[in-house]
Design a binder for these strands. Sequence first.
RNA 1: CGGGCUGUAGCGCAGCCUGGUAGCGCGCUUGCUUGGGGUGCAAGAGGUCCCGGGUUCGAAUCCCGGCAGCCCGACCA
Length: 480
Amino acid sequence: MAESPITARDKDFATWYQDVVLQGDMAEPAEIVKGCMVIKPNGYAVWEILQRELDTRFKATGHQNIYLPLLIPQSFLKKEAEHIEGFAPELAVVTIAGGKELEEPYVIRPTSETIVGHFFAKWVQSYRDLPLLYNQWANVIRWELRTRMFLRTTEFLWQEGHTAHATHEEAIEETLRMLDVYAEVAEDVMAMPVIKGAKSRAEKFAGALRSFSIEAMMQNGYALQAGTSHDLAQNFGKAFDVQFQTKEGKLDYVWQTSWGVSTRLIGGLIMTHSDDKGLVLPPKVAPVKAVIVPIFRKEEERSAVMEVATKLARELGAHVDTREGQSPGAKFFHWERRGIPVVFELGPRDVASGNIVLKRRDTGSKEVIPQTEAAAKLAHTLEAMQKHLFETAKQRRADNTILANSIEEVESILRDVTAEKGGGKFVMAHLKDDPANDARIKEFKASVRNIPSVDEFDGPGKCILTGETVDRRVVIAKSY
RNA sequence: CGGGCUGUAGCGCAGCCUGGUAGCGCGCUUGCUUGGGGUGCAAGAGGUCCCGGGUUCGAAUCCCGGCAGCCCGACCA
């Protein structure tokens, strides 16, 4: 290929993104067929790392993994009115099985609150059975009108936590605790800064009392809801009759929560860090952190270089690119496109001098270092890179966040923003949490992303639509 | 469901307007060469030109009808 298929960011952000994800000889994380995604080894390895990071945190907070059925009797979904109303348009339904029409169709799970409700009702009798702290790793199907690789696919992989508690306070605590876990993984592992906050009433999960989200800003200024956590109150408890006897001997319904993140995180990762050369992976999510590219001409050089390369690879935990018939230049490109954080170059000159060349993916800087210091330098570089990627993303978000004090201001900032041109913004404005106000914002093809848990701005102010005093600014942005 | 675009080798595309032997780049195979940022050369393999019909001596090309995919919008993790 004569040139990088990825040219300029401003060419078209959507195209740029697709190029990074799809380009045949580039990162190859995935392909798409009829809205359904095939995740290839490179992409799945990243998912496995995210799974591990999340799962250890779930376990550390007392959760256990379970597995629930893919097919849910349709009647289950109908038990919670708001839930079925919210999900009905995107359900895939199985009406024929075993060659004949079913008396009651199955729904392919779009999420598992209903079947969880059904089983919680069987499993809970007493306050002594509570809390139930479960998590499921699964796939779900949502028949969306438009798919976008990793960000919105018909089928996606996710984890969904489902818990039941004796009191609302405890459930709220759980909801916020898991939101914190998501924010921690997003920021500390993925180097993707997020804003924690409550969804507006108009944007909350169908069936929840309150929903919370972490919102990240992509490189084009669009928002991405990267994780959600819901306070389901007693809505599902009542719909599925999940009752228990309290310490005082009275009957009460359980207070439930649910929370999830999906393979969408991978899309967020790509859209946060990657550049025109391809994928950029923060070290903590890179399946391979360092690669050594050996360089040699003659046979005696080859054996000398390979000997040192093999020894260093063991010390560094690096992969040696031993492929025959590929020039070093071709190999550098190969790993660069795949987002490998550090590539070492090792040739006869280095073997003679006891040095090695270290190149980092994010800044592109190259440095000659003594082989004896390679391990320490690698560890240091990976750490610096992780931090640098996070700071860069955070700075970009700060640069693209604007305070607005009137609806006209909000409109003028958002009006001409499109996904192709880029240039989205987070607009911070005082806005009362009322579906009517959300509707006004929708006119600008934007939405209230969330009401931040932590106010980083100027505290209370007058709602730009109703004039009522609200206690902080909300995030308004175009989103994926 | 609206609007736009595209279906030609594994991938990316040209050819179509103006009908006349199926092409290019990358990738792949073999050999030599090369190697500090996509080595170079040579020889190869690889096709239902989306499908159906029509016009014509002759259709990838023109006409009609299908189908599929992509992008944009409405819906959403």
